[in-house]
């Protein structure tokens, strides 16, 4: 465990094994849970997309070639901000920092169109802040979203 589970009711928490099928169900559950916690619908799509990409990165890269352990996610919605902390015990991000996330160009021939490499680009586009820390063998990635306050 990288993060001690909080008893704070305002925090939506979930942890699941870092394998594709479990991650898919976990992402769907978190997306539904965030709506239930009051995340406005107009922001929900952005959060779903970025959250899925960040968790997929853990499954596909942090635990690539090693025994997958758990991914822990904690979402805290306060005032006009949503903070999502994603932690795992996989390998650190290369260079111990989040990739810049430049999107591959689509102005190319059909056969050269990119089939991947959009993950970090989408995360950068949809978040207001990305922080990453490697601590005690854990990756701690936090994504911040500005959330419009409902009228």
């Amino acid at each position: 465990m990288c993060v001690t589970p909080s008893s704070d009711q305002t925090c939506l928490q979930l942890s699941f094994p870092a394998i594709e099928a479990e991650a898919s169900a976990g992402i769907a559950e978190l997306s539904a849970g965030l709506a239930h916690h009051g995340l406005p619908v107009e922001k929900a799509d952005d959060v779903k997309i970025a959250l899925a990409e960040a968790i997929n990165n853990v499954v596909e890269h942090a635990y690539s070639g090693i025994e997958p352990a758990k991914v822990q996610v904690c979402c805290r919605l306060e005032h006009n901000q949503l903070d999502i902390l994603i932690s795992d015990t996989g390998r650190p991000l290369p260079g111990c920092k989040p990739p810049d996330g430049t999107a591959a160009s689509v102005e190319t021939s059909l056969q050269d169109l990119p089939e991947g490499g959009f993950g970090w680009y989408l995360i950068h586009e949809l978040t207001s802040e990305i922080r990453y820390e490697r601590r005690d063998g854990c990756n701690l990635l936090s994504l911040r979203f500005d959330v419009p306050i409902p009228e």
Binding site: L110, E115, F118, G119
Partner: peptide
């Protein structure tokens, strides 16, 4: 109801496979 970049990549791959 949802697609991620892997799903997008799969649709792009399908289009390549279908050909120009």
């Amino acid at each position: 109801e949802f697609i991620d970049s892997s799903g997008l990549g799969a649709i792009v791959a399908s289009m390549k496979q279908i050909g120009s």
